[in-house]
Simulated assay, not measured.
Amino acid sequence: MDILAHAAENIKMKEEYAKLILENENLKRSQVKQVDKGTSIDLSTQRFSCSFQYYTGFLYDRFYNVYNFFVPGVDLPFEFSKNISSLVSFSLEDQLLLVLIKLRQDFDFKHLSNMFGISSQDCSCLFTNWINYMFYRLGSLDIWPHRDIIIENMPEQFKTDYPNTIIIIDGTELKIQRPSSLHRQSQCYSDYKSCTTLKGLVGVDPRVSIVFASMLFSGSISDKEITHRSGFLDTLKSLLQSGKLQEGDGVMADKGFTIEKEINNVRLCLNIPPFVPSSASQMSGPAVAETIKIAKHRVHVERAICRVKQFKLLTNKVSLSLFSCVNQIWLVCCVLTNFMPFLIEK
C-alpha cells in the first residue's frame, strides 16, 4: 500500500511540475512586446522571443527598430520576383526574422522551412528577395557622419592621442567554397588563409561604427590594391569636397597599407606603425611607443569586423549558390552592426 501511495504522490508531483513549466512559459509569452500598432506577434515570432539575441543578434526591442526601418508602412515596399503562395499567411515580422536567422546562424533552408512551416524553395526565394531589398535600403544610407560629429563623440583617450584621425581601416577575408574553374581558384586563393577567399575593406570611426564597407574582391588582392579598387580614395576626395572632411585629417591603418603617398595626394595624413629603418637592427624607443599607441586604437576595427563575422553566414564557407548575392549579404551584415550598441562608450 505504501508503494502505491508513493507512486501516486510521484505522479501528482510530476503533474504539478508540468503545470509550473506551462505557467512559466505562458508568463514569458505574455511579456513579449507587441508591435507599435498594437497587433499581436505571430506564433513563430513568439517561438523565438526568449532567444532573440541568439537567433538574430538583436534584443527584442532592437529587432523592431530594424523592422520599422525596413518596413516603415503597412505593406512591404518591394515586390517578390515570383509569386510565393505560402507568404499569404506569413507576417512581415516573421519574414524579416527568417532572414536574420539565416544571416546570424546560417541554418540551411531545409532547417528554416521546418522552423517556419514553408517549403525550402520558398525560404530561399524569400531570403534572396529580402537581401536585395535590404541591400538597396541600407546602401542608400549616408553612414559617414560629418567630421565635427565624429570628433565630438570620440573616446577621450583617442581624442588625446589622435584628435584629427577620422577613420580606421582594415581588410578582412571570407572563406568561400572552392570554384570549379582553376583560373577562379588562382584568383581567389589567399596565401594568408591558405584557401580560397573573398576580401573586403572596412572602415570604422573612433567609436567603432562602420562608416565604409567596400564590395568584395578576390582573396589574392593586396591591401594597397584594394584601397585603390574599392573606391575608398575617391570617397575621401568627395568627402573633402563636400566639407565632411578637412585637409590634414587622418586615416589609421596597419603596416600592410603602404598608401601614404596616395593619402597625402588626397591632402590627408596616414597613421601607421613605424617601420624599422634599414640601417638599424631594431626599433627605437619612441617608435616602439608609437607602435603600441596605434595598436591600442587600431584593434577596435578588428573588433568591428569580429562583430560582423558573428553573422555565421560570413564565418562559414560561403556557398557558391549564394555568389549571386554575396556582396549584398556582406554589406547588409556590415551596416546591420550599426543598429547594435556602441562597442566603445564615449
Score class of each variant (00 low, 15 high):
Arg137His: 08
Met340Leu: 14
Val326Asn: 09
Glu345Trp: 09
Glu290Met: 15
Tyr67Arg: 01
Leu103Phe: 12
Lys12Arg: 11
Asn264Gln: 02
Ser321Leu: 14
Pro274Lys: 01
Cys325Asn: 15
Met215Gly: 04
Ser91Asn: 03
Ser180Ile: 04
Cys334Tyr: 09
Leu112Thr: 12
Asn68Ala: 10
Glu247Ala: 05
Asn65Leu: 13
Lys346Ser: 07
Ala8Asp: 11
Glu173Gly: 03
Cys188Arg: 11
Gln105Met: 14
Lys244Glu: 08
Gln177Ile: 05
Asp142Asn: 13
Ser321His: 14
Phe109Ser: 10
His297Glu: 04
Ser81Tyr: 03
Glu290Leu: 15
Glu262Phe: 00
Asp75Thr: 13
Asp254Gly: 13
Phe342Lys: 13
Asn327Ile: 06
Lys193Leu: 11
Gly248Lys: 10
Phe217Arg: 02
Gly117Cys: 09
Gln95His: 04
Trp130His: 15
Asp191Phe: 09
Lys159Gly: 05
Ser89Gly: 06
Leu240Tyr: 08
Ile41Thr: 11
Gly38Ser: 06
Asn164Asp: 01
Ala253Tyr: 00
Ile84Asp: 06
Ile41Trp: 01
Ser49Asn: 07
Met13Glu: 09
Ile221Gln: 00
Ile294Gln: 02
Lys33Gln: 03
Phe257Asn: 00
Val332Tyr: 10
Leu92His: 08
Leu174Val: 08
Glu173Ser: 06
Leu96Trp: 08
Val318Asn: 11
Leu268Ala: 10
Asn264Cys: 08
Gln310His: 08
Leu138His: 05
Asp106Lys: 10
Asp108Asn: 14
Ala304Glu: 04
Phe158Asn: 12
Thr172Met: 05
Leu336Arg: 12
Lys293Ser: 11
Cys333Asp: 09
Lys309Phe: 07
His146Glu: 11
Ser190Val: 09
Ala18Lys: 15
Tyr136Ser: 11
Phe342Thr: 13
Pro163Arg: 05
Ser214Lys: 01
Gln46Ala: 13
Glu262Val: 02
Phe116Lys: 07
Lys28Trp: 04
Ser120Gly: 01
Cys333Thr: 10
Thr165Ala: 02
Phe323Glu: 12
Ser230Glu: 00
Glu15Asn: 07
Ser140Asn: 15
Phe48His: 14
